[in-house]
Computed example of a mutant assay.
Amino acid sequence: MRQNPSFTLADVTEIRRVIEANPWATIVSSTDDGLVASHYAVLLDDDRDDLTIVAHVGRPDDLIHGLGERELLVVFQGPHGYVSPGWYGDVPAVPTWNYTAVHLAGTPEILTPDENLRVLDRLVERFENGMPEPRLMWQRPNDAAFVERLAAGTVGFRLTPARVVAKRKLSQNKPVETIESVIAALESEGPYTNRPLAAEMRRAQVAREGNRA
């Protein structure tokens, strides 16, 4: 991802927020057989306050990626969407796409079976806790043999990124009135209604105004 100083996202707290809110990630490797991409849910490592992540892949994706032997690129995609030139007013303009994205790259560490099991437990808890009646990993009708058999079909990893590229392209290079116009359009009913993107733009605008203060 090409970086642009106007759109750089460097605040670790904000990058963690993007990862936490958008855990469905794309995992990319460059292998002897070419590029390989997989898609898995990823969590921040709860023992760390940096950008270390934990996740798992199903077998044989560990072999396909050469997990632990080569660099991985893990891509998180935040709110994104189309921006019409008509929202800029009567000025020369072309369409664009606003987005937030985080790229983490590094060589992962393979988790022990016990560590992997704890990560899988956390993963289930992370998403089931929002349910009216959560079905956690160790609850009946699951039993220990069932859980351990499923876990054996996965390989967990921890990645402390050696390189981080994070970008928040949300019209920050436009005048304030243009940003407000785009936010209003995204919040209005229409073919490109996108309230999550509008909220992300508002967040970036508040941060920009705070930095100027």
Score class of each variant (00 low, 15 high):
Gly81Phe: 12
Ala25Glu: 09
Met137Arg: 11
Thr13Met: 02
Pro132Cys: 14
Val124Trp: 00
Glu125Trp: 07
Pro132Trp: 05
Pro95Asp: 14
Trp97Tyr: 06
Ser38Arg: 04
Glu109Phe: 12
Ile15Phe: 00
Asp61Ser: 12
Thr8Tyr: 10
Ser38Leu: 11
Thr8Gln: 12
Asp45Cys: 04
Asp47Trp: 01
Pro60Glu: 08
Asp143Phe: 12
Gly34Ala: 06
Gly78Pro: 00
Asn142Arg: 13
Val74Tyr: 07
Val74Glu: 05
Asp33Ser: 15
Gly78Lys: 02
Val91Pro: 07
Ala105Arg: 08
Pro132Phe: 10
Thr107Asp: 01
Asn22Glu: 14
Asn142Leu: 06
Pro132Gln: 07
Ser6Gln: 05
Thr13Cys: 06
Gly89Cys: 02
Glu128Trp: 01
Leu44Trp: 03
Leu123Lys: 02
Arg48Cys: 15
Thr112Gln: 06
Pro113Ile: 10
Val57Ser: 07
Val42Gln: 00
Arg140Ile: 14
Asp143Ala: 03
Asp121Ala: 15
Arg118Tyr: 00
Pro108Arg: 11
Ala37Ser: 07
Met1His: 14
Arg126Asp: 10
Arg16Val: 05
Tyr82Leu: 10
Ala25Lys: 05
Glu14Phe: 00
Arg140Gly: 07
Thr112Pro: 00
Leu104Asp: 01
Gly34Cys: 09
Arg17Glu: 08
Tyr82Asn: 09
Gln77Phe: 05
Arg140Thr: 13
Thr112Cys: 02
His56Asn: 15
Tyr99Phe: 13
Asn98Leu: 01
Ile64His: 06
Leu136Ile: 05
Ser30Asp: 09
Gly34His: 04
His39Ser: 11
Pro85Phe: 13
Pro108His: 11
Pro79Gln: 11
Tyr82Cys: 08
Gln77Tyr: 01
Met1Cys: 06
Trp97Ser: 02
Thr112Phe: 05
Val83Ser: 08
Asp33Trp: 11
Trp24Phe: 15
Met1Tyr: 10
Pro134Met: 13
Ala10Arg: 08
Val57Ala: 11
Leu51Phe: 04
Val57Tyr: 04
Pro60Thr: 15
Ser29Cys: 03
Val54Gln: 02
Asp47Ser: 11
Ala105Thr: 09
Asp61Gly: 04
Arg17Phe: 01
Glu115Ala: 12
Arg140Ala: 14
Ala101Phe: 00
Leu117Ser: 02
Thr112Ile: 03
Tyr88Val: 04
Phe76Gln: 03
Val74Asp: 08
Leu63Gly: 08
Ala10Leu: 12
Ala37Phe: 00
Asp121Arg: 14
Glu115Met: 03
Ala37Thr: 04
Gly58Glu: 12
Thr96Gly: 04
Phe76Leu: 14
Arg122Pro: 00
Asp114Thr: 07
Asp143Val: 12
Ser84Asn: 06
His39Gly: 06
Gly86Glu: 12
Pro141Val: 01
Pro132Thr: 12
Val119Arg: 08
Gly68Thr: 04
Val91Asn: 09
Gly58Asn: 07
Asp46Phe: 01
Gly34Asp: 05
His39Gln: 11
His80Met: 13
Arg118Cys: 00
Pro5Tyr: 01
Thr100Tyr: 01
Ser30Lys: 01
Asp33Gln: 12
Ala105Asn: 02
Tyr82Gly: 04
Ser84Val: 03
Tyr40Asn: 10
Thr96Lys: 13
Met131Tyr: 04
Leu123Trp: 03
Asp62Lys: 02
Ala25Tyr: 03
Leu67Ala: 02
Leu43Ile: 06
Asp61Ala: 15
Ala21His: 10
Val74His: 05
Asp62Phe: 03
Thr26Val: 04
Asn142Glu: 15
Asn129Leu: 13
Asn116Gly: 08
